[in-house]
């Protein structure tokens, strides 16, 4: 198990990849962000974006998915997030794009009242051309390494 103590400033992780389809973009947007450039390929073609683009909140959701998978690979004791400092949508995400990502630990500090610690990290998603599409700086909480009598045999 990877606990809060195990995260070091400067530590970098490469996230997995996700290829986004038109059907996925439409399904998310129809439910949560029904603006024509997210829900209607024809209307999107006539918009300033020149074609269908994913909701920024969909891109963030995919970043979350890739981050959860990375936590799982590391067996990290993540226990939610109090929020983000910033999020910028830098480039449109279009059907057929393959997104991948990287994250870097910027800062770590322990909670004063709970057996958890905080990790501030930057996460970037890039498309198949290497262009950043979204960048965030956000916080994640991790459990502290348990103290007390060793239970190992």
């Amino acid at each position: 198990m990877k606990y809060w103590e195990d995260f070091k400033v400067g530590e970098r992780i490469v996230l997995g990849a996700h290829a986004i389809s038109e059907a996925e973009i439409l399904a998310f947007a129809r439910k949560y962000d029904p603006q024509p450039f997210h829900t209607d390929p024809e209307a999107a073609r006539r918009s300033i974006f020149g074609g269908l683009i994913a909701s920024g909140w969909h891109t963030c959701a995919l970043m979350m998915r890739l981050s959860v998978e990375a936590n799982r690979r590391e067996d990290a004791a993540a226990t939610g997030s109090p929020g983000l400092d910033s999020c910028r949508w830098l480039k449109p995400v279009r059907p057929g794009d393959t997104l991948t990502g990287r994250s870097e630990v910027l800062e770590t500090w322990p909670s004063r009242s709970k057996p958890i610690g905080f990790v501030r990290r930057r996460v970037d998603l890039v498309n198949q051309h290497g262009e950043p599409v979204v960048t965030i700086v956000g916080l994640t909480m991790y459990r502290r390494r348990p103290v007390g009598p060793a239970v190992r045999a």
Binding site: F37, G80, P82, L84, W89, V134
Partner: peptide
Amino acid sequence: TSGAMGFDDLKW
């Protein structure tokens, strides 16, 4: 409006 550039200071 024409979308958003992003957001700051999101708190759950």
